[in-house]
Design a protein around this nucleic acid. Sequence first.
DNA 1: GCGACAG
DNA 2: ATCTTGTCGC
Length: 226
Amino acid sequence: MEYGKPRRVSLEKLRAIQLKLAEKVVEEDCFDRLENICGLDVSYKEDKAVACAVTVRFEGLRKIEAAFASSKAYFPYIPTFLSFRETPILMKAVRRLREKVDVFMVDANGVLHPYFLGAASHLGVLLDKPTVGVTKKLLCGELLEPRRLESGVTMAPIVVKGRIAGAAVSVRGLKPVYVSVGHKVSLETAVRLVVETLRNRMPEPIRLAHTLSRAYARGCQQTLRT
DNA sequence: GCGACAG
DNA sequence: ATCTTGTCGC
């Protein structure tokens, strides 16, 4: 409700933290098997933040578990500082999961960020787990020439400060989603995972987390049943 | 200084 | 993100 109060930590300090954590990001595949994928998202209800972590089996995309966490939103939304708003509540939801997770998919950017540390990467480093970032709108960077892959998938690399930081991926001529490495995964694998879990505009794990966190925030018990 | 800007 | 109903279209 009121974020106007002076923060005890300056944005310059937070920027320094991002630069530090960005050095720890690993852009290579660091997982042997791919059985479960967990979608992550946060919804808001006035000044309350609700996070949902929903795990699905990669084969068939069937939901096998969902965990929630809620708290007051202590940090405002400030472009390029999203992780400081959502990482705490997402960590809380993830800790409540019981089933093993191989890769996390977050509704946020990974290294597709002006300082190469979007919320998906920030979370990945804190969890020390593989994460992929996916968004519906471009935060930064310039798109290179689109490339049509075999399965009718169109991919356009995105460059940030001279580095390929992500890719615009679109299927069946739909509006693209922006994919980037979060942590411990390669861009190639990140794109593959998104394409293989894409039923609608957003990959299924994230779409589910979005629906569930929103239902939880609005107290829709019925939707949360199954 | 100006404009852009994930959720 | 959120405030919000019906409605146009594949």
